[in-house]
Amino acid sequence: MTDVVGFGRLWVVQAVAAAGGIGGGLWATRLWGMAVLAGGLGMLLPPFIAAPARRRRQTAEALAWQAWTRQIAELARSGAGLGDALAASTEHAPPQIAATVSRAARTARLVGLRAATDELAAVGQVWEPEAAAGLRIAASSGGPLAGPLSDLAGRIGDIVALHRARTEAVVQLWTQTIALLALAGGVVTLMYRNNPAYFEPYRTPTGQAVLLLIAFVLLGATAFLVRHSVVRAEPSVLVAPKRASRAPDPL
């Protein structure tokens, strides 16, 4: 629910920034190409600027699930049953997932483990289905719980490692993109401030058309960089894809 609200707010910010960019660019330069470029950047940059906070939340959640699966495996290794281990893990569960773990433990106590794992799998699409599947395997193994739960902890750890490696690569691209955008913006601003006559040819109808074409090319390149500079949490392979023709990529 929080992600949906945040997404809605982001669209409002993008719309306001785009309108402000178009108005400000047209007022400052009287060039439609510059107005379109400023408005397009206003539309593209808010999610790009918000990306670091989103990456931190995703990484914190990933590490929380990694810590919790290791914790429940250790509880099982100490002799606790799966229901008892699940209940005991609520006391020290990481804050990012404490509410989810508490609900699952309460459902396991009142209705049963199967209902608890089904509820857990339905909570999210990235980590929760993996954790729920591991708990189901442990519950149905018929042997010691420590082995299946340790396997679950190892699998979650592998997925987290892939997530962090991907995040590091995206952070590098984000840094490069912000540097290129800052350099390009600074150069254009200095050119317009120090030599406004440079833009005089673009005030003709043909010049306006050429400048619009340049603006669309620059916005297309920027959109490509922005899209690949944002970490997107891919659904678990255990979740059915929304489009049957395209299976989700694992993290």
Rank of each mutant, 00 (worst) to 15 (best):
M1C: 11
M1I: 15
D3K: 12
D3A: 15
D3W: 13
V5Y: 10
R9N: 06
L10N: 04
L10Y: 05
V13G: 06
V13D: 07
A19V: 14
G20Y: 08
G20A: 15
I22M: 11
I22G: 04
G23P: 05
G25A: 05
A28I: 10
G33C: 09
A35I: 05
G40S: 02
L45E: 05
I49K: 05
A53Y: 01
A53N: 03
R54Q: 14
R54H: 12
W65Y: 15
A76L: 02
S78L: 13
G83H: 02
S89Q: 10
T90D: 03
A93N: 08
P95K: 11
I97W: 01
I97D: 01
I97V: 15
A98D: 06
A98W: 07
A99Y: 07
V101R: 03
V101G: 03
S102K: 15
R106E: 14
T107Q: 10
T107K: 11
A108V: 11
A108E: 06
L110G: 02
L110V: 14
G112S: 00
L113Q: 04
A116R: 03
T117S: 12
T117A: 11
D118R: 14
E119L: 08
E119G: 14
L120V: 04
V123H: 09
V123G: 01
Q125T: 11
W127V: 08
E128I: 03
E128A: 13
P129F: 05
R136G: 04
R136P: 09
R136F: 10
I137N: 04
I137C: 02
A138M: 07
A139V: 01
S140W: 07
G143C: 06
P144F: 12
A146P: 00
G147R: 09
L149M: 02
D151F: 03
L152A: 03
G154T: 01
R155S: 08
G157L: 06
L162T: 09
H163Q: 09
E168R: 14
A169L: 08
V170M: 05
V170P: 06
W174A: 06
Q176E: 12
I178N: 15
L181T: 06
G186M: 03
T189W: 13
L190G: 08
N195M: 14
N195A: 15
P196T: 07
A197M: 09
Y198F: 15
P201L: 03
Y202G: 06
R203C: 06
P205L: 10
P205I: 09
V210W: 06
L211A: 06
I214D: 01
V217N: 03
L219G: 02
G220E: 12
G220Y: 08
G220D: 09
A221S: 00
T222H: 00
T222F: 04
L225S: 13
L225N: 07
R227D: 10
V230K: 08
V231W: 04
R232S: 13
A233K: 00
E234I: 07
E234T: 12
E234V: 09
P235E: 05
S236F: 02
S236L: 01
V239G: 03
P241H: 11
P241A: 10
R243S: 10
A244W: 11
A244R: 13
R246S: 11
L251H: 00
